[in-house]
Design a protein around this nucleic acid. Structure first.
Lengths: 151, 151
DNA sequence: TATTGTTATACTCTATAACTATA
DNA sequence: TATAGTTATAGAGTATAACAATA
């Protein structure tokens, strides 16, 4: 190694970044989403679409706007998402009985089957990704910590 | 509350999502980046640009590609980033002595001052965002956990 | 007046491919 | 042949503004 490129050959020093939760959150999330996309490539949905399905499954009958707000998205972004999930026969729009402006979202039977398959896949993915943690207690602690960080 | 919209008035049940590290990572990271952007609106840089600056500061003389790889970005994305930071007089390209294809990146004096200001702002932001955690030990534990999750 | 779903639009981020000059 | 920087481009994702129907 010649003296003049000594620096360039050393390993990168992350300096301050290594102590910044915001940066470390981003790297961890990028890793989760990249592997998620691989695991889900055959099912044809993104992490964002899975979140929509999971929320409709747990909260049948909600409006598009309610689901969007719960996910922190703008309601305009829900249109394409629900269009796609309706084309995939996973969820369906039904006219709201109490408000003719809005639709209520429900799972289809196909959607329930799909959700069962996808959920198992998600939990397997989670298990693999969190295998570096000590035990279930540590995973629970991490989940609780992340929740407080998003409030 | 009328019986037919009982469900719609209840609070959202996050169901499975609440147990999914990938989803909780995303929400936490979105919160960090949104508040970061507010805090940095007057300085004119995004979280991604701050990461570039921090890495150049800790690793002067590296090439664009080296910085990009360290951040997990494509090298093509570095062009606009370095263009902008060079226009802001924060970092500068210098011709590499050993390889005429590449540039070495260095901080300017303005850049060093800027970094000092920005770093303080970042650490203040971090402190506020992690104030919900018990102590410094818990922050360190979180940082270490997040690091293992991104490998 | 306010809200729901919708469309159009724009802006950022990211990824890919191809080009040039060097190695 | 391979690599560094660059350009063009295209695809997500996201946010804003406006509109029609309805509240």
């Amino acid at each position: 190694m010649s003296p003049e490129n000594k620096d360039a050959d050393n390993k990168i020093d992350y300096g301050l970044l290594d102590k910044v939760v915001g940066y470390r959150l981003r790297r961890a999330q990028m890793n989760f989403f990249a592997t998620f996309s691989e695991v889900f490539s055959d099912l044809g949905i993104s992490p964002g679409l899975f979140a929509v399905i999971a929320l409709v499954e747990s909260n049948p009958g909600r409006t598009q706007t309610a689901i969007a707000q719960a996910l922190g998205n703008d309601r305009s972004a829900m249109v394409a998402a629900v269009d796609k999930l309706e084309k995939m026969k996973i969820i369906e729009r039904r006219p709201s009985k109490s408000d003719r402006r809005s639709y209520a979202l429900y799972m289809t039977q196909t959607g329930n089957d799909f959700f069962k398959t996808a959920s198992k896949r998600v939990m397997d993915h989670e298990k693999e990704m969190t295998s570096c943690l000590k035990d279930e207690k540590e995973v629970a602690w991490l989940l609780e910590t992340l929740r407080t960080l998003s409030d």
